[in-house]
Design a binder for these strands. Structure first.
Lengths: 340, 340
DNA sequence: CTGAAAGCGCTTACAG
DNA sequence: CTGAAAGCGCTTACAG
C-alpha cells in the first residue's frame, strides 16, 4: 500500500447534498453558529451525515475564509525539554484544544537560516517563553502577526512567573537554616538563558541581603571546561560552605567537579539545585532542589494566549508557581562537621 | 502598543497593480514557475515591488489552492528532548526548509483527549520517530493523509537506523576487551520506549553470543523505585562485572544505586551508557558511553519526508549513525582489582 | 511573452 | 427557519 491515492476529500458540500440542505446550513450546524434557528431534526441529519461520510473540515479553507488559523505558536528557548517542561506544554495544549486552538511548539534555529515557523503557519498568536528579540518581533509583524506575547519591552510570562523568585529565595533560606553563612551562586554560562539566570540570581541575592548575609559570590559553571573545578577550589578557600545553583544541571556539574577536586558534598560544601528534575534524584549525592508547578504554568500560558486571541478575560489572574523545597543528600547542617 | 490593528494584508494583487501586470504573472515570478517565459525586466519589477510592499504569501490560501500545505509533521515519542535530539531536529528542519517545507514537531498527549495535530495542520507528510499505532494511522487516513512514514507494519526510520545495533555491539565489545566475561543488561522499564530497548538488547545479546559469553541477564531499572539497588546487589552476587545500560540515564540511575549500596563503580562493576548526553560527562563517576550521529539522523528523516512528499529519489540511500565509543571513568579493566 | 478566469473549501453577511 | 452569493488569496490550466 505505498500507492498514495488521494481519494477526493469529503466537503461540506457533500454533506449538504446528502442531507438536502444548503452549504450554509451545514456550516451553521457544524460550527454551532449562534443566532441561527435550525430545527433539531435538520441538525441531527447534518451531524449524522458528517459522521457517516467521515467529514473533516479543511483547515486551510477555514483559515482563509475566517482569517484565523486557530493556531497558537509557542516559541521555546533552546533548552533541553525535560519531563517537567513537557508536562507544562501538555497542559497548555489541552487547555487550548478545549477552546478549539492548536498549540504548536517551536524552537528557532541557532545556526543556519531557515524561515521562521510563524511565517509558514500564520498563527493567530505567538507566545514566547522568554522575551523576543527586536528582529523576531519585526519579522512577525512583517507577516501580519499582531498578537505577540510578550510585547517588546514586556516581561515574558515565564519570566513573570519566576520573577517572584520564590524558589531562589527558598534555596537561600534552606542553606541559612542549616547554619550556612557564607554562600555562593553557581550560574550558567549559557548565553541563551542569561536573563533567567539573572532573575534567579537577583532573587537569591535579595534574600541573602534580607537575612543579613554577605553578598553571594557568583561564578559561571560549564561542565565542559574547568570552571566548576576552579569555582569549587576558590569557594572552598574563601570559606564558602553553601552553594546556590541556578538549576539542577549546574548543581550537578558543580558537585561533580567538587568531588573530583577532592571535596566532599555535603561534607565541605552544601549544594542546592532548582527545578527538581530526574537528575536531582539520580545524582550521587542526590541533590536538594526546588520543585515548581509546571502544570500551572502550562495552563497559565494557554490562558494568556486565549485572552490575546479572543479577548477573553483571564480566568486565572495570578500565577503561583508554588515553589517547594525538596531536601536530599547534597545539603546538610553546617555544624555537622566535614566528613562524608 | 497593545492595540491589535490588523492592517490589511499585502496580497499578490497589490503587487500586480503596483507593477502593472496580471495576478498570474506575479504568481509565476514569485514561484519561479518553470515553463513560463517572462522578461527579466518584468521579473525584476515584480520582485522589487514584492520587497518594497513587504509581501508575504498567505499560507492558507496557497495550501487551499495547491492542495499542499508544505508542512511535514514529525511525531516525537514522549521522551525528554536533549541537546542531541534537538540537533537532529534542527538538521531535519533546515534540510526541509531548503526545499520549501516546514517541519513541525509534535508529541501526542499521553493523558487527556486533544485533537491530534495532524488534524488541524493538514500536513503533507507525517513521519514518526517510532512506529504508529493502528488507531493513529486510522485517524490520519480519516483526515485524508496518505503520506505516512513508517507505513503500518514497517519499521520506523529511527528504528532502522539503530537496528544495525552498532552502538550496543560496541558497548559489549568494550567491556569484553577490558576482560569482563559476565555481563548484564540494564534496561528501561518505561513502556514508551520498549521497542527501542528491545532493539538495543537484541544487538547486545547478539554480540555477547558471537563473543562466546553467557547470555546477558536483563533487569529493568527505574530510578524511582528500588529496582536499581536490587539489580546491583543481584548482579554483584552473581559474579557480574560489566553492565551494559540501555542509555545514559539508565546507566546513571544504576550507577547511583550501586554506589549507595556500597559498591564501587568501576571497582566492582563497570557500567557503560549509550547516547553520550551531557549527563554522561557530568556524572560521578563520568560514564563511558556511545556517541551517535544525530545530525545524520536529522538529515535522513528530512530526506525520507521529501522523498515521500515529492517522489524525489533519496540522495542518501543508507544511514550510518556512526556509533563511536567514548571511554570515561565508569568502565575499567576487570583485572585491575576492586578498589575505587 | 502575458492575461482572464475558474476553482480550492470554507465563512458570513444578507435576503427571504 | 433556510438558501444564494460574495469573498478569503492563492494556483493553474487555458487562451491568446
Amino acid at each position: 500500500m505505498t500507492k498514495a491515492t488521494r481519494r477526493p476529500r469529503v466537503t461540506a458540500a457533500d454533506i449538504a447534498r446528502s442531507v438536502g440542505v444548503s452549504r450554509a446550513t451545514v456550516g451553521f450546524v457544524l460550527n454551532e453558529t449562534p443566532g441561527q434557528t435550525i430545527s433539531q431534526s435538520t441538525r441531527d441529519r447534518v451531524l449524522e451525515a458528517a459522521a457517516r461520510l467521515g467529514y473533516r473540515p479543511h483547515t486551510a479553507a477555514q483559515a482563509l475564509a475566517s482569517g484565523r488559523s486557530r493556531v497558537v505558536l509557542l516559541v521555546l528557548p533552546d533548552w533541553p525539554v525535560d519531563y517537567s517542561m513537557r508536562r507544562c506544554l501538555e497542559e497548555a495544549s489541552l487547555t487550548l484544544d478545549r477552546h478549539g486552538y492548536s498549540l504548536v511548539t517551536y524552537t528557532p534555529h541557532t545556526s543556519g537560516r531557515a524561515r521562521p515557523l510563524w511565517e509558514s503557519l500564520d498563527p493567530d498568536v505567538v507566545i514566547g517563553f522568554t522575551p523576543f528579540g527586536v528582529d523576531d518581533v519585526a519579522s512577525m509583524e512583517a507577516c501580519g502577526i499582531t498578537k505577540i506575547i510578550p510585547r517588546p519591552a514586556e516581561q515574558s510570562p515565564f519570566w513573570q512567573a519566576t520573577a517572584a523568585g520564590a524558589g531562589s529565595a527558598l534555596q537561600v533560606e534552606h542553606l541559612h537554616e542549616l547554619g550556612h553563612r557564607r554562600l555562593a551562586f553557581a550560574a550558567s554560562g549559557d548565553p541563551r538563558i542569561q536573563m533567567l539566570v539573572q532573575e534567579r540570581l537577583l532573587a537569591a541575592q535579595d534574600r541573602v541581603g534580607s537575612l543579613g548575609l554577605s553578598p553571594l559570590d557568583v561564578r559561571k559553571i560549564d561542565h565542559r571546561d574547568g570552571s566548576a573545578d576552579q569555582a569549587a577550589r576558590h569557594w572552598q578557600g574563601a570559606g564558602v560552605t553553601g552553594v546556590v545553583a541556578y538549576n539542577d544541571d549546574i548543581a550537578a556539574a558543580f558537585t561533580g567537579a567538587a568531588i573530583r577536586a577532592g571535596l566532599s558534598v555535603p561534607g565541605d560544601l552544601s549544594v542546592i539545585g532548582h527545578d527538581d528534575g530526574p537528575l536531582a534524584a539520580m545524582f550521587v549525592p542526590s541533590l536538594s532542589s526546588i520543585r515548581v508547578d509546571t502544570v500551572g504554568l502550562g495552563v497559565h500560558l494557554a490562558e494568556l494566549a486565549l485572552q490575546e486571541a479572543e479577548g477573553r478575560p483571564p480566568s486565572q489572574p495570578e500565577l503561583d508557581m508554588g515553589a517547594t523545597l525538596v531536601v536530599r543528600e547534597s545539603t546538610r547542617d553546617e555544624r555537622d562537621g566535614a566528613n562524608t
